[in-house]
């Protein structure tokens, strides 16, 4: 018990240091740090609406993190997760703009479309890696940019609204395609359930199935896993498929829930942020949930800085990045000690 308590306190040291660091940055730019932190907190927690937004922002983080747990288990750096969100949103948008169905059929179909779109984009990065020898970081980054370019082309070309294309995206989808809200609150129960289920599923799959065990074996040592008779190529492609599918589901939810249309930055950086979440969680599934909640709160709260203090909202991202960096460094210090 005492051991655990002291571990917890030690674990907080890098977080405190990270806060100190951001405080110094705020002082350098001449902004009162206390007020900045209070604005972020208020922006995230002041009303039920904000609480709901935080939960909604947590959904893509959880879905992508769940997928990244799988790729990381196989020793893969799936940076392409950002583009996989976009691909899911694109396929869902294509159907949402071109079909008319009752909601009971339409919404499940669009969610599945997201899964498929993301899985295909993930498979592409996987094929480049497994059969083309292109490291997944470069394949992924390339595919991310290509997905963004494709989105812009579609919004300003084939899918442009009747009254002219703008950065605000396509026409809104027909209401039958909208993911249902919880009353008036901007939160989507289906999405929350799916996201939590995804994390739980990956928790059990990686912990208690031979599939998970084999993936981990590949992650530890690909060559010896291969020699042990594990079909490494197939398992690695599978990991990309699973992660891409979950990211694509997040993309579909962003399109038919949060935005009810396709916008240029539909992935919203959630994929990259999810990579930070999983790194900070030390690849442990259960830690993903509170960390994603925290990141979501910072993400929802920091735009307030622009409104009330004329500071850029990137302070939130800076804080998150510094926390992850310091935690990684602190793990190294601890291991040395």
């Amino acid at each position: 018990m005492l051991q655990r308590l002291s571990n917890l306190t030690l674990g907080l040291v890098p977080v405190v240091l990270a806060l100190l660091f951001t405080t110094v940055i705020l002082i350098i730019v001449g902004a009162p740090p206390g007020e900045a932190y209070r604005n972020i907190l208020q922006g995230a927690l002041e009303s039920p609406d904000k609480w709901a937004s935080v939960v909604t922002a947590m959904v893509p983080l959880l879905l992508c993190s769940a997928g990244l747990l799988v790729t990381f288990a196989a020793g893969l750096w799936n940076i392409g997760v950002e583009g996989q969100i976009v691909a899911g949103a694109l396929l869902a948008t294509w159907l949402a703009l071109n079909l008319t169905l009752p909601p009971i059929l339409f919404i499940p179909l669009l969610l599945v479309a997201g899964l498929i779109g993301g899985a295909l984009w993930g498979l592409l990065a996987g094929l480049l890696r497994v059969y083309g020898g292109v490291h997944e970081i470069f394949g992924g980054v390339g595919l991310n940019f290509i997905a963004i370019v494709l989105t812009n082309y579609l919004i300003f070309g084939p899918w442009k609204p009747a009254d002219g294309a703008t950065m605000s995206g396509t026409d809104p989808f027909p209401p039958a395609a909208w993911l249902p809200r919880l009353g008036d609150l901007p939160v989507y129960p289906t999405a929350v359930v799916l996201a939590l289920a995804a994390v739980a599923l990956m928790y059990f799959a990686l912990r208690g199935t031979t599939w998970g065990l084999k993936l981990k074996a590949i992650g530890k040592n690909q060559r010896s896993a291969f020699l042990m008779g594990i079909p490494t190529s197939r398992y690695m492609l599978g990991a990309f498929l699973v992660c891409g599918a979950l990211a694509g589901l997040a993309g579909s939810i962003q399109a038919i829930g949060v935005r009810q249309r396709l916008i240029p930055g539909v992935s919203g950086g959630y994929g990259f942020l999810a990579l930070l979440v999983v790194l900070l969680a030390g690849y442990r599934p259960l830690w993903v949930i509170p960390i994603a909640l925290f990141f979501a709160a910072v993400g929802v709260g920091s735009p307030r800085l622009e409104l009330s203090m004329q500071l850029d909202s990137a302070l939130g991202g800076t804080l998150e990045g510094i926390i992850v960096l310091f935690v990684l460094l602190a793990q190294g210090v601890k291991r040395k000690a």
Binding site: I25, V29, W77, I137, D312, G317, G321, V324
Partner: peptide
Amino acid sequence: VAIGFVLTLLGAEMSSFL
């Protein structure tokens, strides 16, 4: 790779903020 990746995001965010 992890540290490099975190610094990639951190550098971008800090450049936007500062």
